[in-house]
Amino acid sequence: MRIECPFCGERDHSEFAYFGDAACARPAPGAADAQARFVEAVYLRENPAGAHRELWYHEFGCRSWLQVTRDTRTHEILEVRLARESTAP
């Protein structure tokens, strides 16, 4: 698999580490039901057949965290963005 790092360019997947579902934002720690929300964020992950937004870490490259949209059926990479730009307010 090849991943187009926004900074480094297209690279072999062996340079990256995989961290799963990117949709899990950190819940508000002060919420009344914080514990339930954290359990959901930490343990309950989507595993769709199709387009999936995932976190990849370019560990052997520029050390950027990436938000990669990948088709889990074909491994086709549909979009790659820097995670910091995807989650900024």
Partner: peptide
């Protein structure tokens, strides 16, 4: 280092 960069870039990029 991975944990810290994750916190820095993904959780609190601001």
């Amino acid at each position: 280092m991975r944990h810290l960069t994750h916190a820095r870039q993904v959780l609190w990029p601001q």
